[in-house]
Computed example of a mutant assay.
Amino acid sequence: MQKILLVCSAGMSTSLLVTKMEKEAQKRGLDTKIWAVSTDAALRNMEEADVVLLGPQIRFMVNDMKKKAEKFGLNVEVIPSVDYGMCNGAKVLDLALKLINK
């Protein structure tokens, strides 16, 4: 099972993207857990994730999040603004899977 953690300011704006990613994963027959949390809850959730994706609105936190994720051996990346804005679940899922397999 691939566990994909999305982090945004409040944990709310990514909910639609999570739904789109889950539908895409289901369509591909992948066993995934995809969830979104606020920045405050990110560290608590990292220990159960395989990868961390940040909403573009918090891209300024990427270095801090990478430092926090180091102790869990996780890759952290900012979701491209276009894919985030268009709720392109397939592309964001591809990004997550690429980072997990890195």
Rank of each mutant, 00 (worst) to 15 (best):
Lys91Phe: 07
Met61Arg: 11
Met65Gln: 03
Asp31His: 11
Asp50Tyr: 06
Pro56Cys: 10
Asp31Glu: 15
Ser38Ala: 13
Leu53Gln: 01
Ile79Gln: 09
Ile34Gln: 10
Glu47Asp: 14
Leu97Thr: 12
Leu53Gly: 09
Leu43Asn: 13
Ser13Ile: 07
Thr14Asp: 04
Asp50Cys: 03
Leu99Asn: 01
Met12Leu: 08
Ala36Glu: 00
Lys33Met: 14
Val7Ile: 09
Val18Met: 03
Asp64Thr: 14
Ile79Glu: 08
Thr39Gln: 15
Val82Phe: 10
Ala96Met: 04
Asp64Phe: 10
Lys23Val: 03
Met1Arg: 09
Lys66Ala: 11
Glu48Trp: 00
Phe60Lys: 02
Asn63Phe: 11
Val76Gly: 04
Asp83Thr: 12
Val51Gly: 02
Gln2Asp: 13
Asn75Tyr: 02
Ala41Ile: 09
Val78Gly: 01
Tyr84Asp: 01
Lys3Val: 12
Ile79Val: 15
Thr19Gly: 14
Gly55Asp: 09
Lys102Arg: 12
Ala49Glu: 00
Asp83Ile: 00
Lys91Ala: 10
Lys98Ile: 13
Pro56Glu: 03
Gly55Ala: 13
Ala25Tyr: 05
Gln57Pro: 04
Met61Asn: 02
Ser9Tyr: 01
Ile79Gly: 10
Thr39Pro: 01
Glu24Lys: 08
Leu53Asn: 03
Val37His: 02
Met61Lys: 07
Ser81Trp: 11
Asp31Met: 12
Ile34Arg: 03
Glu77Asn: 15
Gln2Cys: 14
Glu70Leu: 03
Val92Ser: 05
Asp94Gly: 04
Thr19Lys: 15
Asp83Pro: 06
Gln57Leu: 04
Met21Leu: 10
Lys20Asp: 07
Cys8Trp: 02
Gln26Lys: 15
Lys91Thr: 01
Asp50Arg: 00
Val37Thr: 08
Ala10Tyr: 10
Val18Arg: 11
Ala90Asp: 13
Leu54Tyr: 01
Thr32Ser: 08
Leu93Thr: 00
Thr39Glu: 15
Val51His: 08
Gly11Tyr: 09
Asp50Lys: 02
Ser13Gly: 00
Val51Asp: 07
Ile100Gln: 07
Thr14Asn: 11
Leu17Ser: 01
Glu22Met: 08
Met1Val: 05
Val62Thr: 05
Asp94His: 01
Ile34Pro: 05
Ala10Gly: 13
Ser9Val: 11
Met1Gly: 07
Lys3Leu: 02
Lys27Leu: 14
Gln26Ile: 04
Met86Val: 07
Ala69Asn: 04
Asn63His: 11
Ala25Asn: 07
Asn75Cys: 05
Val76Asp: 07
Leu97Arg: 15
Tyr84Trp: 10
Lys23Met: 12
Asp64Tyr: 12
Lys102Ile: 09
Glu24Thr: 11
Ile58Ser: 04
Ser81Phe: 14
Leu53Cys: 13
Leu6Pro: 06
Asp94Arg: 05
Lys91Glu: 14
Phe60Val: 02
Asn45Tyr: 04
Leu74Ser: 04
Asp64Met: 11
Ser13Phe: 02
Phe72Trp: 00
Ala41Leu: 14
Ser38Cys: 10
Cys8Pro: 01
Ser38Thr: 10
Val62Glu: 06
Gln2Asn: 14
Lys68Gln: 11
Val82Ala: 08
Leu43Cys: 09
Leu6Phe: 14
Leu53Pro: 06
Ala96Tyr: 06
Val92Thr: 12
Glu77Gln: 14
Leu6Trp: 04
Leu97Met: 14
Ala42Asp: 00
